[in-house]
């Protein structure tokens, strides 16, 4: 995936440099400088990812000491990956963690999206008494080191509810952590919808819920994608709570399995790559809407 992205950028970029008739000779030097700095930044971004993929297919007696291009590759190349996937039972720690992570992530993503859409709508197109107070508290929570300060209290609450060592229940705190940002994204996107459209729907006799579901929902799609991706990212990778509120090895999420010291073996690199891939695929599919959504909602104000 990464190499595919680099290829076209390089070629288009040279074409572009040649085919800009407006610019005289001196600025074209500037153009080269600009693109070379950007390409440098992009290679900095991509290099560790390329390296970890290479590491995951290393073989041979010196695989723990080879630091760049592998001298020997696995045969077949994906042997380390196959090693992860064989023994597809819940006895396999990789599978167990993967299934926990999948459940938690689905619950978090769903509940965050629903909560943020409903609240974003109410805080932008309905007259909500006390909306300023609610927004103020949500903003304040973003400037407060909530995650650390709340930790002891959170453990106590989950303990009382009997939710310690119940991995699925992590979606409660995860959704709570995502709520503030997500509501602001959705509110920003809803505010971009002209008031007249909402009013027209009202005059046609649609209730507030029907206006939302039938008319507004497709218009705020970009914002929903942003919320989905951000909450996916948190739930898939959160470590602190997942390692604190869950004690038994059987209940570890993928992030905890990775974080608890998995060594430096190529097999571990394969595990890391497998854990990264869903996030990158989600981003790859949604990047178009994600970039739009960021522009529409998240980055306003």
């Amino acid at each position: 995936m990464t190499s595919l992205l680099v290829g076209p950028s390089g070629s288009q970029e040279t074409q572009h440099a040649m085919a800009s008739p407006r610019l005289p000779v001196l600025p074209s030097l500037r153009l080269v400088a600009k693109h070379s700095v950007l390409i440098l930044l992009c290679s900095w971004v991509l290099a560790p990812l390329v390296w970890v993929v290479l590491h995951s297919v290393k073989a041979g007696p010196f695989k723990y000491f080879e630091r760049a291009w592998p001298k020997e590759f696995q045969d077949p190349l994906w042997a380390n990956y196959r090693w992860l996937w064989q023994d597809a039972t819940l006895e396999n720690p990789f599978y167990r963690s993967l299934s926990h992570s999948a459940v938690i992530t689905l619950l978090t993503v769903f509940s965050t999206a629903v909560a943020a859409v409903l609240a974003g709508y109410a805080l932008s197109h309905l007259s909500t008494p006390g909306s300023r107070v609610i927004l103020g508290i949500l903003v304040a929570s973003m400037f407060f080191p909530t995650q650390v300060t709340a930790l002891t209290g959170l453990f106590k609450i989950q303990y009382r509810l009997g939710l310690i060592d119940r991995p699925w229940s992590l979606f409660f705190p995860y959704t709570a952590m995502m709520v503030a940002v997500s509501v602001f994204v959705m509110r920003g996107v809803f505010q971009a919808v002209p008031k007249e459209i909402v009013d027209a729907a009202r005059i046609d006799g649609a209730g507030s819920l029907r206006t939302l579901v039938g008319i507004l929902l497709p218009m705020v799609r970009n914002g929903i994608v942003v919320v989905l991706i951000l909450s996916f990212n948190l739930a898939w990778g959160e470590y602190l709570l997942a390692s604190t509120l869950v004690n038994r090895r059987d209940n570890w999420t993928l992030a905890v399995l990775l974080g608890q010291g998995i060594g430096v073996a190529p097999g571990s690199a394969a595990l890391l790559v497998v854990a990264m891939v869903p996030a990158l695929i989600a981003f790859g599919i949604a990047q178009h809407w994600f970039l739009r959504g960021l522009q529409d909602g998240a980055l306003r104000g």
């Binding site: 991706i229 990778g237 990775l258």
Partner: peptide, 9 residues
């Protein structure tokens, strides 16, 4: 791309 990769990874 890096921002899309979860923290512990």
């Amino acid at each position: 791309i890096p921002s899309m990769i979860p923290a512990p990874l």
